[in-house]
Design a protein around this nucleic acid. Structure first.
Lengths: 166, 166
DNA sequence: GTGCATCCGTACGCTACCGTATGGAGGAGC
DNA sequence: GCTCCTCCATACGGTAGCGTACGGATGCAC
């Protein structure tokens, strides 16, 4: 069996065979492969932004930024999927959606920093760098052996230190 | 003309046509496409680690970590190439090389943090998060419109703040 | 000048994948 | 029972890209 992730593996015949169907069935439900890609990416964009933000917002105890760090660090199993989608951002169907997700997330972090009293300009720049650290963490999680030696508690501690940096 | 970057564009016939040659010529110099990929990735691994580290080491004025930040933030034009190679890390020929580059760079940042007096365990974790921020910065640079509003001086300031965070 | 090594071009086979054409099974309505 | 709609399978055409076969040119040794 293949890698199960990756834009290249989002192929019509491969997907159909995995389900146990054929191409004839696929092309009844989807007009073409582009429609499938759109559906997958749009689904990801939803669960990767609104769902996470809602999850953080409704869990009322403690600081929201801390809860956000716990949420994004607590689900390393979703890292490969997200990283593969980001890696396909050069595709014309995926790039705009990814950019939209980036801006939504950065703006959310910026608002949380503002709520902690950080000045507007600094909050904007800090939000970008913090989110960049999250993205790079995805990359490193995907590289075999690079993150094996580091404990998640250390990571959490460093992320929180970056939030509170002067 | 195409995008000039991206693993998919590293194709034999496309490359040959771009130079003005043909496949027959290519297969005289390379055994197959895998050998070409190996050569490109290995070349990148060299210039992306040893070259940068040497550049930082020999420029003697000021703090080494600050110089490193200036070097990596000062060459945004190399971001697309690096980002595309990282995005192809699921390829069996590229993944190990990328992991090697990650570890080399993280260890370098860790040593610089140690030289500033940071405790070993914290330096190891901090180096990973700092490097992750650099990687995420590559991702955001590639997303159109996301980084337009932020000035490089602000970015530099935030990176330095992350270095000195408690 | 003849033989040999080097380098390159043309033509072909092969595979993977997308998309289409076409027929057929099974249920719903009447 | 006839018809139509929904869903699926088989078979085919078309394209992109990798790798190979083979012939031709160019230069060097002798």
């Amino acid at each position: 069996m293949g890698t199960r992730v990756g834009f290249k593996n989002l192929a019509v015949e491969l997907l159909a065979a995995e389900i146990g169907a054929t191409k004839g069935s696929f092309y009844w439900h989807f007009r073409d492969r582009a429609e499938l890609v759109d559906a997958v990416v749009e689904q990801w964009a939803h669960t990767a932004t609104e769902a996470i933000i809602a999850d953080v917002e409704e869990g009322g105890s403690g600081d929201a930024l801390e809860r956000l760090v716990d949420v994004v660090l607590g689900h390393p199993e979703s890292a490969p999927t997200e990283w593969r989608i980001l890696g396909a951002a050069d595709h014309p169907q995926i790039g705009p959606v990814v950019a939209r997700v980036h801006e939504t997330r950065i703006d959310y972090v910026r608002r949380l920093l503002r709520a902690r009293g950080m000045a507007p300009a600094r909050a904007a720049a800090r939000a970008r760098v913090l989110y960049a650290a999250y993205l790079g963490n995805l990359v490193l999680l995907d590289a075999p052996g690079v993150m094996d030696a580091v404990k998640r508690s250390s990571l959490r501690r460093e992320f929180l230190a970056l939030i509170d940096a002067p």
